[in-house]
Design a protein around this nucleic acid. Structure first.
Lengths: 246, 246
DNA sequence: CTTTATCATTGACCCAGATCAACCCTGTGG
DNA sequence: CCACAGGGTTGATCTGGGTCAATGATAAAG
């Protein structure tokens, strides 16, 4: 291990990965996530706790009700978050995209299950380590709280969708919602990636796979969308947005 | 104003209301709410910021999208929280009971509307004042975060109810859910108070008023409940719980 | 190339819950 | 006392979306 001059240590902290290739400092989703709350030095502290992990499609990150020993920050890919009823009915409560943080609640058991939809990269932290960090970083806690209340707002919006929207409005709200979230990660898009299956979409919207399929083909027939492999291109975003508003 | 001996000030802080009748110290829902995070001295600080308010039935506490200058801690009564669609469809996203805190998000606009179902008492804080208090009380922030993630969990559970449960299961889940929440406030109950209208229940569960009414009368016919004025008595709690689990 | 598997689409039919329409309370005011 | 207003209940009917059943497309395996 090469020595680091003392005068350098002050400006550029001795952060094992920061001197290498893939440090937090050059993480493309840093500003979207919890990490945005940290300065350069704190980032190193966090990085020391982080463990890079990858998950192949369908691999599980964690399972509902099991001890929550790890929390994750998604850096690449899509994760589905869901709850199962004893008889097999499933409700997907959300899709986590790059920048999303799983484990906001710091509870001792997971409140839902999570598995990879496509190959996923994530920073893994032990709950204990992260919790300790939190204890003397109130601004990190504040950031976490900010993200938690944002999630709460999204969940409440989804309650409106599930409780009071028609099938057509539900599908439209998914497409517009995902478009806007992808836009924050990748920049503005006209082709919305839909890496998840029709069954996943159905379980998110409280519909069946057949209704999702029929609704999408109807949108395509009416030239509002074009169905492409693993996504849809929004041909008439205005009309789609109108369906989510009215 | 009578002088307070210096040696007394230390143990019993000079808290205007604490020396009177209705201080935070003897608030019956204190331990259920944010306030549980504060010690006696901090409680006084909080109390100095609080303004006791009352709302008659149907009066509004605040309206969605309007500037969120106040936050509320409900001390008595029931508040309905809801979102409206432009065409008048309504989704009730929750009922706030004594001990519940409205304004967890500290956002600058309200994310939903809130109005009193029955006569309501609440402690009102200016958002600014409360936010300042938060800045130098990390444990208060931690408590707030705890409550926010609890709310998030409830919202996710409700997503399962709205997306994947039958009408019968929905009504059962409301009754069991309210019973358990009332139990934390008033102690264990067999008669679940339902001060809200059938329309409110319908808008919470994503049903119509007729379906709610029919489902309740079916439960009554099958001797699972007894319908009483402003509530139901659970005659067979086990069977009701079974409906929410399976 | 064929086989097998997985997912998506499409059609025919059905049903849980919505809609429409009385009717019935209970309380309030004249 | 009656009138009448705002819930709540009940019944008859309708329909959006579910269920069941093929069929089609894509891809990996042999």
């Amino acid at each position: 291990m090469p020595a680091v001059p003392a005068e350098n240590r002050a400006v550029r902290p001795s952060c094992s990965r920061a001197r290498g290739e893939v440090g937090c400092a050059k993480c493309k989703i840093r500003l979207l996530s919890v990490c945005a709350a940290l300065d350069e030095n704190e980032l190193c502290e966090l990085e020391a706790l982080a463990q890079q992990t990858v998950f192949e499609p369908k691999k599980t990150l964690f399972i509902q009700d099991e001890p929550a020993d790890a929390i994750y920050n998604i850096t690449d890919g899509v994760v589905r978050l869901y709850k199962l009823l004893p008889d097999g009915r499933r409700q997907i409560i959300g899709f986590a995209l790059p920048g999303n943080f799983l484990g906001l609640s710091m509870a001792d058991r997971y409140g839902f299950s999570a598995d990879a939809v496509v190959p996923v990269k994530a920073c893994r932290f032990s709950r204990e380590g992260f919790s300790n960090l939190l204890d003397d970083k109130p601004h990190l806690l504040r950031r976490l709280h900010e993200l938690a209340t944002h999630e709460l707002t999204l969940a409440q919006d989804q309650m409106v969708v599930l409780g009071r929207r028609s099938a057509e409005e539900k599908v439209a709200s998914l497409l517009i919602g995902l478009r806007d979230r992808w836009a924050r990660v990748n920049g503005v898009v006209v082709t919305v990636p839909l890496p998840m299956s029709r069954q996943d979409i159905a379980d998110f919207l409280g519909l069946t796979i057949e209704t999702v399929s029929r609704t999408l083909t109807r949108f395509a027939r009416e030239k509002i969308i074009l169905i492409v492999p693993d996504g849809v291109r929004l041909l008439d975003p205005r009309r789609m947005e109108a369906l989510t508003e009215a």
